[in-house]
Amino acid sequence: MLYTQVKGRKVVSTGTAETVGRVADLVIDPRSHTVVAVTVRGSGHGDTVLWSDITAFGTDAVTVPDGEVLKGANDAVKELSGTAHDVLGKRVLTTDGEQLGSVSDIDFDPQSGAVTVLVLPSGDIAGSRLVGVGPYAAIVHAA
């Protein structure tokens, strides 16, 4: 599933069948190459839902058991969120110090949350090559 397609997707509570917000951002842990949380906007509750609290990441809506799973970001999530850790649009550097371009999209597995591919204009990079993401660049292992 592509990052650019899930932005703005409805987050629906299966308990109340109500829309509790919309997907704002994915929080990615570069060390495990997985999506660890989703930030939500327009919610009356908190703005973060942990990946483990999501019932399903569907093609038309993201379902959660109820609005209560939306909480404030915990420390682990806070450390990985914010513009400094955004992967989308960031320049990509290899561990050899070569710049490959900037990330135009991210493909992830809606079941496990694993980041499978970083999409770049110059070509795709396996998500497993991701080493770290910071304010300057996303670092990937040299091929």
Binding site: L93, V131, G132, V133, G134, P135, Y136, A137, I139
Partner: peptide, 10 residues
Amino acid sequence: RPVVTLNGQD
């Protein structure tokens, strides 16, 4: 040339 850490910080 920038000096960049593996955490992506210059």
